[in-house]
Nucleic acid binder design. Structure first.
Lengths: 349, 349
DNA sequence: GCGCAAGATGGTAGCGCTGTCAAACCCTGG
DNA sequence: CCAGGGTTTGACAGCGCTACCATCTTGCGC
């Protein structure tokens, strides 16, 4: 048999070896040095038109896809940014993630997504694994972590943005809103409207640190007012609207004195409103209902839901921008951003 | 100055170099060969207890995190599985993703998430980039891709599962349901109930291939019945409930003969129901409403929504399992799975 | 026509890890 | 006390790519 053609050789290598066309294959096909191919790909302007064309042709015929591992290893630049959130089922995180995605993608980064299911041990494990990708930075939801997680992150020597809630102590940078103040604001509103027995409804509130803070903010404010009191309803399973639906029934049956319910999120609150509709319970006449997040749906139910609007997409974008700026070597003046919130008073209170 | 100690050298390397503790640093600290550290991490049983303990101690004190790039490059095993979906705003994809995540995570894989925003060119670009991670397999939503995307995928020489819809022609493997049949099933139901002027409401239906198929399935069935007809309402912007809300208004005002609306998803359908509630429009008396997906919410609105339940999490799990099996070298008997759907008739039709 | 700067290309080494095979070690039975 | 087998440890090379520096070309002013 005679000498195989370059194409045939490439194909053989592809099948036999690790199953991929490499930069050297392209170089051989284009009859240039490997490094030139690398340049043609990464800084096209530094290669002459003629060569660039020849190389691109070779790339196309061979179907070459650069191996990013090798590139990352050689250049110590990863192009992957890990994002850690507690849950994907919650729309809220998804919106933040979208904000992040939009922002980092235009700058050529890829998102590595991890979810902890509100478990701090899993979070620590996840951080360790993801750090293994030698990322240029890291985005992680929340300010509360295990000590070892914080240590890992600090030692990694890369910028870290903790997003969602705003607080005094952060590992590196922080973008979010004060859930404590949000809770207090809602309490204030409900008290002003004359409600005095207020229930807070959540799921696994102990684990959901931010919901917990909203409750605390509310609780503190209510304590300050004579004759007012609150109750915490902490469900352990279920999701969103189902919980709200159930909770409304439970509360009316078992704690009829309650005159207002502040739900940990809009989904639950909407569930409660739908239940009220179905069962003919007057809202806010018999009981007031409030939510948190400001999902579009909250404006569409009848009665329209009083809620606190959180700028979720903004959090994602801001967090990503901050991280990218730091990765690019800039030193932003501020490391902590309070994106704020807005109390949207509607018909349900 | 005299020669720096290994430890000092390691520390210096850490600060100066790439900013990370390497396997060699650990080896130096534990006074063993690098390869032994590698073994202690990857196959602990093949290292004596004494050494293993010493190595683990060194790892902990130094805060070593293995560099997965290097590992992947050396072993040609990646541990990253790319997942490509058209959108993250749609809960449906999120649920599928959760199913995938759950499944691959327990097997030590990480998910690399990409979203195309229903743009096939972006999809092609994304596939190319993600293939650069030399993944052991790939999960991609949908069966319709650009020819060059399919070529890339086929040439990559790794298993690929196309999920969401079920169809005859797939690149490698396929898990999903027939949207065409789902549309036909809903048409059948509406016709049986006596509706004859049926509208289909979607957003960017041309791009949303699956919605399009549902419409086609419905359309075909309706054509078969004398005196029945359908109209396609294709909105170009907005999301979920807002669209449904608007669409109901538009249809009643501009095409009052329409007696039933089949929405591209439950979110829109619920939006329409909420609008009907608010405006006192009788559903299904004045107009029937149906959705698609079977979100929990669909059962809670009044009237409860007739919809088609799609097994989203199952799709994710099944797709991931199939892929993992193939990655593990198994040859599953079947390459295409129809997970089916269920028409859930409720009050709104 | 020559010298020099700027631009285009290539050679070499090494990123951090693991596969492969070789060497060193340990224990047992005769 | 030693051969023989298994177990534990190590040396070496190389994964695919890029940083760095060296070399070669080209064009231009004087």
């Amino acid at each position: 048999m005679d000498k195989p053609s370059p194409t045939a050789r490439a194909r053989a290598a592809k099948r036999a070896g690790r199953g991929a066309v490499t930069l050297s294959d392209v170089a051989a096909a284009a009859e240039v040095a490997p490094i030139t191919v690398s340049r043609a790909i990464n800084r096209p302007e530094s290669v002459s038109d003629a060569l660039r064309a020849r190389i691109r042709a070779a790339i196309d015929t061979l179907g070459y896809v650069p191996n990013r591992m090798a590139g990352a290893l050689a250049s110590a630049k990863t192009g992957v940014i890990p994002v850690i959130v507690p849950s994907l089922s919650n729309v809220v995180f998804v919106e933040v993630i979208e904000g992040i995605q939009e922002t980092i993608e235009t700058r050529g980064y890829q998102m590595l997504l991890g979810s902890t299911d509100y478990d701090l041990d899993r979070e620590a494990a996840l951080v360790a694994t993801l750090l293994g990708w030698a990322p240029p930075g890291m985005l992680i939801a929340g300010l509360r972590h295990l000590p070892r997680t914080a240590t890992l992150l600090r030692n990694a020597g890369v910028p870290v943005v903790e997003f969602m809630e705003h607080g005094a102590r952060c590992i590196d940078m922080n973008v979010g809103l004060s859930h404590y103040r949000a809770g207090a604001a809602m309490a204030e509103h409900l008290l002003t409207r004359g409600y005095r027995r207020i229930g807070f409804v959540g799921v696994r509130v102990r684990d959901d640190y931010r919901a917990c803070q909203r409750y605390e903010g509310m609780h503190r404010r209510i304590l300050e007012v004579g004759g007012a009191e609150d109750v915490l309803f902490d469900y352990s399973g279920g999701v969103g609207q189902d919980i709200g639906w159930r909770a409304l029934g439970d509360v009316l049956a078992m704690r009829p004195v309650i005159d207002a319910l502040f739900f940990a999120n809009d989904e639950m609150a909407v569930g409660a409103i739908l239940r009220a509709q179905r069962d003919g319970i007057a809202v806010p006449g018999r009981i007031a209902i409030a939510g948190f997040n400001g999902l579009p749906m909250s404006a569409l139910v009848t009665p329209a839901l009083t809620t606190i609007i959180s700028p979720r997409k903004l959090i994602g974008r801001r967090a990503a921008e901050l991280l990218l700026a730091r990765i690019a070597g800039e030193r932003p003046g501020r490391r902590r951003f309070d994106v704020g919130f807005r109390l949207e008073v509607r018909e349900s209170t």
